[in-house]
Nucleic acid binder design. Structure first.
Length: 429
RNA sequence: GUGCCUAUGGUGUAGUGGUAACACGCCAGGUUGUGGUCCUGUUAUUGUGGGUUCGAUUCCCACUAGGCACCCCA
């Protein structure tokens, strides 16, 4: 015998047999429905790209050691996409000049990152990417935030199960200036930003140590701390009134007021610790947080990235977007008991068993006729006693059962039986 | 890259230094055209390799695989 192969999926990937696929399909369907409702248009890009486009901006990990690359027949180095943003920006760069603005685009696609898999994270994952190109207006930020909120609300989450935490890179810049950290060299400044990003994860002592190492004085650190512990914009201006005319501050203020007017007030909050790891963000940044007490994890995040198109040699164009992933969304749904199989398959499923071996062809003909009416017909392949057939129909959750055996054939009829009520209706062949 | 945990039929779990038990599932039958119940039968040399031992599924080591946390991120 030849070597027995493993039936295990490659590490970090998952099979989705029908039962599991139904959950993903439910998530994808909700995503697609809400995006279309917002007038967003669906697009897709190739699963591979030149490796360079990730090395340029995706950072050390995503664009480096986590990148899965290979060489094509022409010796070009290609990567399986680890994220959508470079691809969509590349695509939009080609069509931007000739397109009516703004562009509102979304896609649902899979990605590969060579990571160590764990809960909520796989090497292969799917995510929804939503972006608006061509508007630097606050209205675009607002639209993206509403979309992000409605995408979560579409799953009917209970009150207080999630929140959208909002911040602005321009406010971060403001506080860096105020504290004097803005004068640091680019590298030290980046260290400061990265340290602030870790605010909730690291103990305060470690934070202070890192900031000191980056070259900050005691007074500067105190200012940063005052900023980071602010729980609301009101609290922030009270402590640091110098920020009240900062562009980022005003931007957050406007956006939160607008969202409150729109009825999302309970769901949004200012959070100074939301910074986001990607360097290309340069305005609004936000993060949706699962508020489940056991988890309290970030579900997805996004923000404004007006400066990214330059890597394709284009004039920059304004862009704002975000991307929720399938796994984290599924975990959110599980946490709050929102996975209801009743929501999944709406269309009635019919089982048409082969009750007599003499009716192979006739049964196919009947199936063809019913399918032409748009019915969902699972036709039996081998002769089955009616008892067995009913048993099968029960196990597979069919809604309707079609009785078509020798007796019916002779009479020129077939019978549709409702599996729930047991009611039977005769119909002419 | 770092740390920790786990490995027994298809699935989920017991158990023991003397060749494995239970539940569910699957398939077949009881039941030769009307189901979801019930009953019976079938379904495993305990991840791989080595060591200790008269004897290992059990104890030890290595490997492999999987999971969890950190890092990073979705």
């Amino acid at each position: 015998m030849s070597k027995v192969l493993s039936k295990q999926e490659p590490k970090g990937t998952s099979d989705w047999p029908p039962e599991e696929f139904a959950v993903r399909k439910y998530i994808f369907d909700c995503w697609r429905r809400v995006c279309l409702r917002y007038g967003f248009e669906e697009y897709l890009t190739p699963i591979v790209e030149s490796a360079d486009i990730y090395r340029a901006k995706s950072g050390e990990d995503v664009g480096g050691k986590e990148l899965v690359t290979f060489t094509d027949l022409g010796g070009r180095e290609l990567s399986i996409r680890p994220e959508m943003t470079p691809s969509v920006v590349r695509m939009v760069s080609k069509i931007y000049a000739a397109s009516p603005k703004p562009l509102k685009y979304f896609s649902i696609a899979n990605f590969i990152r060579n990571e160590k898999p764990q809960r909520g994270r796989n090497r292969e994952f799917w995510q929804l990417n939503c972006d608006i190109f061509g508007s630097a207006d606050e209205a675009a930020d607002l639209e993206i935030l509403c979309l992000a909120l409605d995408l979560v609300l579409e799953f009917d989450p209970p009150q207080n199960s999630f929140a959208l935490c909002i911040n602005s890179r321009r406010l971060i810049d403001g506080i860096l200036e105020l504290s004097g950290a803005g004068k640091l060299k680019t590298e030290a400044r980046a260290t400061v930003v990265r340290t602030l990003d870790k605010w909730k994860k690291l103990p305060i002592v470690a934070i202070r140590e890192r900031l000191t190492q980056a070259g900050l004085k005691q007074e500067a650190i105190i200012i940063l701390e005052q900023f980071m512990v602010s729980r609301s914009l009101e609290e922030l201006v009270e402590k640091l009134p110098e920020l009240k005319n900062n562009a980022g501050f005003l931007e957050i203020n406007n956006v939160i007021n607008a969202l409150t007017d729109l009825g999302y007030g309970e769901l949004v909050e200012f959070d100074p610790s939301v910074i986001r790891g990607f360097d290309y963000y340069d305005g609004l940044v936000f993060e949706a947080v699962d508020k489940h007490p056991d988890i309290r994890r970030s579900m997805f995040g996004g923000g404004r990235y007006n400066g990214l198109a330059e890597i394709f040699g284009e004039k920059n164009f304004p862009a704002v977007g975000f991307a929720p992933g399938d796994e984290v969304t599924k975990i959110f749904l599980e946490n709050w008991g929102l996975i209801d199989t009743k929501k999944f398959g709406a269309q009635a499923k019919y089982y048409l068993p082969l009750l007599s071996s003499g009716l192979v062809l006739e049964t196919r003909k009947l199936a063809k006729k019913l399918r032409a009416r748009g019915l969902n017909i699972f036709a039996g392949l081998e002769e089955q006693k009616i008892t067995k057939a009913l048993d099968f129909a029960n196990k597979k959750d069919f809604n309707k059962f079609i009785i078509f055996g020798d007796d019916e054939y002779k009479k020129g009829i077939y019978i549709i039986k409702d599996m729930k009520t047991g009611q039977q209706i005769e119909e002419l062949l």
